[in-house]
Design a binder for these strands. Structure first.
Length: 773
DNA sequence: GAGCACTGC
């Protein structure tokens, strides 16, 4: 075999190899575990390279700044662990690596570099991938590592994220990327043959993409003895990953031996944790009280308070500011000034930056010091770190996505956080010096009520997209796929069912040619489907725009003090037949005014979201061109909107609602959920049949982004789904039956049909008349 | 007459 690797030497291969009768079991083999490519570089050699005068990658002399960075690096504990790292890395195919929280940054900078140096003489032409759950991290870490290695970003060290590929083919050998990006690459190269080592960072976050990658890579590692895998995680999950990547037949009694663990010690400061004596009935009120108490009684240091959402945060900010003002008025000499800064993702970036402002100065020299209070969502738990936080207030809640496969609805629920999450939050207090964490729940509740880990995303999501990806990756049996945590069978069934109705999978669950193309689009399957069929309706240009607009955050702005103005501006752009058409109209108007920087703002639209939509549109257009899907628009004004609405039906026929009674209630078809039109909906009337983009569960169930459709289209373009025989009895079925009867009647009397079926759209006509007058 | 936890392709 290549590289002199025999199957026996690789337990993963041995596991796959047919067992010979009477041959000794692999568990008795005592020689070194793996016989991979000879990566026997020693720590001394690497130190020599690091400290030498010439950069081994560029063959250029090391720069002065490099030498300065190197001196600092030499003091880090990881540097001292180099020899230990190379030993475990050389001897094992899979290593689970653990660093205390707060230490992760060092880990993600150094370990990939160590691998890079070890690979230098051996794996020419193959790359090292290091995945991150977030784009910003992939970008910034790559930048810093390029600096540390004294190479140019985008050359030997690069990154690859959506819309931005900073790598050079043939030159880049260390590539930081988002986990989703690596998963995309895997769809066209399931064995990831371009890579010699794959490092999954932040594995404990258990994003959907990381979870799928872990399942995939476990299989690939068995097939590819030359592939090395490093799973990096926070302490708590390590054992789970060690077991998951365990080596068959190596442990006691022939059981799997856990994958080896490599520990990188942490460097965080101690955090003292306080609990309440009794449970708090109102956590927002308790949180406000705690923040004010800290402000009055504790030493200087900034405060981070975790709340669940925008409304809660803005409310708390207001109340804390009021109370702080009261304190100041009572006795300006006893308390310092306090600033309260909200932080959540939908805040414009400039306002997010405020969290890095220094705390306010004392009112007068020698007076009590000022304090900064940041009130944040979970964004401060993972995505953004704020240095200088000394006090954390943790009410123990966050909004979490949950998926109900029975009614096919994803919603956000305020739920108790996990122990792991609580520890992560507490850790935010100890980044610069010893800190304190005030938990607004009892110690008993922490011990007994909180789950160990937050449920991984794969257990809380609609998996339609994921299942299509898995099938595209060549996974034959989705139920038997080796998940780290297997999703509920019902969730998989729902996904398979949807993909089958969309004709992405055939009745045996095999990928159809259409499904293969759908998987190439970074879109939900419904949207991919309608985009692909849209040329048949002569509106692919328009559907492309609508899909792009649906893929970005809400474009409508509605500032609290200008709601009326915002609503009026929206009204001017509204198309009465449906919100999807309104989105198209908004985009087209935006493009016509692209050079007017104030256009978005004066129309109460988010310029950021619109730019993003434009990016997404361009990317999708490239994918369409790759598959030769025509970009066309009809010139016929009479059918312009009708065609678009028909194409929408081809993707979203499973998200149809039927009007019931006169109260404006709708029933979702087949699931029979009573829903209302969301107040943001711009429909002029309440049509009998509508398709909707999402079902949201807030004060009551709503359908949002809604468009008027005709029932005969449902029967025509989704006949399989609207098979009346399988329909539950009820008003919806009877209404469809009437349409069907009428249609059959019409088909019988052709002349009649010719006369009425001119294809014109009554509402469009009406509107054109209106516009003319 | 509502609201948008957070990511990602």
């Amino acid at each position: 075999m290549a590289n002199g690797v025999t199957e026996k030497e690789n337990p993963y291969l041995a596991h796959l190899a047919p067992k010979k009768r009477g041959s000794p079991s692999t568990s008795t083999v005592k020689e070194p575990l793996y016989g991979f490519l000879p990566r026997r570089v020693t720590a001394d050699q690497v130190r020599g390279a690091l400290e030498g005068d010439v950069n081994p990658f560029t063959k250029q002399p090391h720069s002065a700044s490099y030498k300065k960075i190197l001196e600092a690096r030499k003091k880090l504990p990881v540097y001292a662990q180099m020899a230990e790292f190379y030993k475990v890395f050389t001897e094992n195919q899979v290593v689970v690596m653990v660093g205390e929280t707060g230490n992760c940054s060092r880990r993600k900078f150094r370990i990939p570099q160590f691998v890079a140096y070890s690979d230098l003489p051996h794996t020419k032409g193959k790359m090292i991938a290091c995945t991150q759950p977030r784009r910003v991290a992939a970008m910034s870490v790559a930048k810093r590592v390029a600096d540390e290695m004294d190479v140019q970003l985008g050359k030997q060290v690069g990154y690859s994220i959506r819309f931005e590929d900073m790598t050079e083919h043939g030159t880049t050998f260390l590539k930081y990327m988002t986990d989703g990006m690596l998963l995309r690459e895997a769809m066209n190269d399931p064995d990831l043959t371009r890579y010699s080592t794959i490092i999954l960072d932040e594995a404990h976050e258990r994003t959907l993409a990381t979870d799928i990658l872990m399942g995939l890579l476990k299989g690939v590692a068995k097939k590819r003895p030359d592939l090395k895998l490093i799973v990096m995680s926070a302490t708590l999950d390590a054992v789970k990953f060690q077991k998951y990547f365990g080596i068959s037949g190596r442990g006691e009694d022939g059981k799997p031996a856990p994958a080896p663990l490599f520990l990188v010690p942490g460097r965080t400061h101690s955090v003292e944790v306080f609990y309440t004596q009794e449970p708090e009935p109102d956590y927002v009120e308790a949180a406000i009280r705690t923040v004010l108490m800290i402000h009055r009684a504790e030493d200087p240091g900034d405060v981070l308070l975790f709340l669940t959402g925008e409304e809660e945060i803005e409310d708390a900010c207001r109340k804390i500011r009021l109370e702080a003002d009261d304190l100041t008025n009572q006795d300006p000499d006893s308390v310092g000034p306090l600033v309260c800064i909200p932080l959540y993702s939908t805040l414009p970036p400039a306002q997010q930056q405020r969290i890095f402002d220094p705390a306010p100065s004392p009112r007068k020299e020698g007076g009590p010091p000022g304090r900064k209070v940041v009130i944040a969502t979970n964004i401060a738990e993972t995505s953004l770190t704020i240095d200088g936080i000394v006090y954390v207030v943790d009410p123990g809640f966050s909004k979490q996505k949950v998926y109900n496969p029975r009614i096919r609805v994803e919603s956000l629920l305020v739920s108790p956080i996990s122990k792991a999450s609580a520890q992560q939050r507490a850790g935010r207090a100890g980044r610069t010096r010893p800190g304190k964490c005030f938990r607004l729940y009892t110690e008993k509740d922490f011990m007994n009520e909180l789950e160990e880990q937050t449920h991984p995303e794969i257990l809380r999501s609609n998996l339609a997209n994921t299942v299509l990806e898995l099938v595209k990756l060549g996974i034959k049996d989705l139920v038997k796929f080796d998940y780290v945590d297997a999703p509920a069978p019902e969730t998989l069934m729902r996904a398979l069912e949807l993909l089958n109705y969309l004709a992405a999978l055939d009745d045996d669950g095999n990928l159809t040619p259409l499904g293969g193309i759908m998987a190439e689009f970074p879109l939900d399957p419904q949207m991919a489907k309608m985009l692909i069929v849209s040329p048949e309706f002569k509106c692919s240009n328009e559907i492309l725009t609508i899909v792009a607009m649906l893929s970005v955050p809400n474009v409508w702005l509605r500032p609290n003090n200008q709601r009326k103005e915002a609503d009026a501006a929206k009204q001017l752009l509204t198309v009465p037949d449906g919100d999807h058409l309104t989105l198209l109209n908004v985009y087209n108007n935006y493009m016509q005014n692209i050079h007017d920087k104030n256009w978005a703002w004066t129309n109460y639209l988010s310029a950021r979201a619109l730019t993003q939509a434009d990016n997404v549109r361009a990317q999708l257009q490239r994918t369409m061109e790759r598959f030769e899907i025509d970009l066309i628009s009809t010139q016929d004004q009479r059918t312009f909107y009708t065609n678009i609405r028909q194409a929408l039906v081809c993707g979203f026929f499973m998200q149809v609602a039927h009007k019931e009674g006169e109260k404006g209630n709708y029933l979702t078809v087949k699931d029979n959920q009573v829903v209302g039109l969301h107040p943001s909906c711009g429909l002029e009337t309440q049509p009998e049949w509508v398709i909707f983009n999402e079902f949201v569960l807030t004060t009551r169930p709503y359908i949002r982004t809604v468009t008027d459709v005709r029932p005969e289209w449902l029967l025509e373009y989704a006949g399989n789904y609207f098979d009346l025989a399988s329909f539950p009895d009820g008003e919806t079925k009877r209404a469809l039956q009437r349409v069907l009867n009428k249609k059959l009647g019409k088909a019988a009397g052709r002349v009649d049909n010719e006369k009425n079926g001119s294809g014109s759209d009554e509402r469009v006509k009406k509107k054109q008349k209106k516009n003319k007058s």
